[in-house]
Structure formats: structure tokens, C-alpha cells
């Protein structure tokens, strides 16, 4: 049995741990809020972009842009968005499980986040590129990745580009998902992606009085040229959204994990204190007994 001093030492160390996890929980909560706000802030942009895309879709033909053309083959680029730090529950494990299920021998990997990189290196997979994205996510950084990916897609013989990320459903639920980023399906242009739902419900596109009216837009110089500019922007935006979803998921998962860690530590402190008090009481009782016995013997 541990001595009273050992128990006291343990209580102290558990208390320290609880303080740290509590602090991490609070930090994660505020960061999650920020990521959500960021996703909200991008909504006016998304709405306008979608409106333009819907009109462009009607005025251009299928396959009129290289990023919209379906390709044959099984070579693909897989972008894996994981977290940089651990202590966020099963987030990365779930993502990697989903990934192992979905990846094919023709997959090459681009990683964003340290955990994914480490795991894929362990699996002896071929890493093609690795990016680091700071917190909070900045669009400028996302754009660079977007441009790199588009370049690779156009120059390489990849059939498609997919992204593995964690979709933020709510604070308690995050779902690992794999979505196709490229090629963009012509019909999907301007449609709401089912994973974009963070913060608030984006409204249905157009049909709200705002718009060009029956005559439609004039495209300058022409619809195809405009489409050429819009599609990469759309891809960048999607990637940005996926990064935001992953970040929000990371922080909420960490918040929940740290909350349960704090609760467990508190429980442990309670139990240890009980044991400690019992032992202390036992020591006092036996001391008293000794004194009374000694008194009795002297009489």
C-alpha cells in the first residue's frame, strides 16, 4: 500500500495535469469558434460565386474546360488533411481508417498536417508533396495549394484528385470524408456541396429577385474565358472550405477530448483524496490507541 506521502504526491501531479487539460479545452473552444466564424464569413463569396457558376453552366458546353473533363485511368492524387498536433481523440485515426479503405494502388499522396504525413510515411506510401497550413487558415496559403494541385492535374496523367478531410457536423460529431475535387462535374457547378453546412445553412442559389433577369448576363469577353477564371477559383474555394471544416473538427474534437480528460482527472483526485483521508484517519486512530494503551499500562 502506498504511503500517505506518495498519495499526496500523486494528487498534486494529477491536479497539475487537470489544469493543463482544462486550459487546452478552453483554447480549443475559442479556436473552434474562430474557424466557424471564418466559414460564415466566406458565405457571401460562396453565394455570389455559385450564382455566377449557375449562369455559366447554362451557357457553356460540357467539357469546355480541361478541369471539367472526366478522365480514364486509376492514377489519382489524394490530398490528406490531418492535424498537426495530437490530443484530439480519434480524429486522425478515423480519417486514416477511411483513407486505407478508399485508397488504390494508383494513389499518390499530398499531405497537409503532420499526423497524416507521419502515418503515411509509416505505411511506406509515396508522398508527393507536403504542405503546412497555419492556424487560422488563410486563403492565400490555400490558393498556393490549389494552384499546385491544378497544375499537377493538368500536367500529370492523374484521373482525379480527391481530398480526405474531416467534416464538421457539430461539436460532438465529426465525420471523416473523401470527396472528389477534380475534375469538377459540369452539372455540379454552383451546386451546394453537402459538406458545406458549417455555421449556417447556405440559401438556395439565385431565384430571389437578384439576378440578370430573363436576358441573362453578357459575358466579357465570352462565357468560356470567364469560365476559365472561375473554375480555378471555385476549386480554391472548395479546398479552403475543406480546410476550414477540418480545422473546426480538430478543435472541437480536442475540446471534447480535453473535457473528458479534465473530468477523469477530477474523478481520480476525488478517489485519491478519499484514500488519503482514510489512511490519515487510520493513522490517527492507531496513534490514539497507542497513547491510551500506554496510559493504561502506566496506571
Amino acid at each position: 500500500m502506498a504511503s500517505a506521502r506518495d498519495i499526496r504526491r500523486r494528487i498534486k501531479s494529477v491536479k497539475n495535469t487537470a489544469q493543463i487539460t482544462k486550459a487546452m479545452q478552453l483554447v480549443a473552444a475559442s479556436k473552434m469558434k474562430k474557424a466557424q466564424d471564418q466559414a460564415l464569413a466566406s458565405r457571401p463569396y460562396a453565394k455570389l460565386l455559385n450564382e455566377i457558376l449557375v449562369h455559366l453552366r447554362d451557357q457553356t458546353e460540357e467539357g469546355s474546360h480541361p478541369l471539367l473533363v472526366e478522365r480514364e485511368g486509376d492514377r489519382e492524387l489524394l490530398i490528406v488533411i490531418s492535424t498537426d498536433k495530437g490530443l484530439c481523440g480519434g480524429l486522425n485515426t478515423n480519417l486514416l481508417r477511411q483513407l486505407t479503405r478508399e485508397m488504390t494502388p494508383g494513389s499518390r499522396f499530398i499531405t497537409i498536417g503532420r499526423k497524416g504525413r507521419v502515418a503515411l510515411t509509416k505505411m511506406q506510401k509515396e508522398l508527393f508533396a507536403d504542405f503546412h497550413i497555419k492556424d487560422p487558415v488563410s486563403f492565400a496559403e490555400t490558393k498556393q495549394i490549389g494552384r499546385f494541385v491544378i497544375e499537377q492535374f493538368l500536367n500529370g496523367d492523374y484521373a482525379r484528385v480527391r481530398v480526405a478531410f474531416t467534416n464538421f457536423v457539430n461539436t460532438m460529431t465529426q465525420v471523416a470524408m473523401i470527396e472528389t475535387l477534380l475534375p469538377v462535374r459540369h452539372l455540379d457547378l454552383g451546386k451546394k456541396k453537402d459538406f458545406i453546412g458549417m455555421g449556417n445553412e447556405p440559401e438556395a442559389v439565385s431565384q430571389n429577385g437578384h439576378g440578370p433577369g430573363p436576358a441573362g448576363y453578357i459575358f466579357e469577353p465570352d462565357a468560356a474565358t470567364v469560365l476559365e477564371t472561375v473554375v480555378p477559383q471555385y476549386v480554391n474555394y472548395l479546398l479552403y472550405q475543406m480546410l476550414l471544416e477540418s480545422r473546426a473538427s480538430e478543435h472541437s474534437a480536442r475540446m471534447v477530448a480535453m473535457k473528458s480528460a479534465t473530468d477523469n482527472a477530477k474523478e481520480l483526485i476525488k478517489d485519491l483524496t478519499l484514500v488519503y483521508n482514510k489512511q490519515r484517519q487510520a493513522a490517527i486512530t492507531s496513534e490514539l490507541l497507542e497513547i491510551t494503551t500506554a496510559m493504561k499500562a502506566l496506571e
Binding site: Y45, L48, F139, N236
Partner: peptide
């Protein structure tokens, strides 16, 4: 006139 970026209005 509205100017929007992905990071906000």
C-alpha cells in the same frame, strides 16, 4: 457595390 473575398465581406 459589394466587395467580397473568401475571408469576408
Amino acid at each position: 457595390l459589394q466587395i467580397v473575398t473568401p475571408e469576408g465581406k
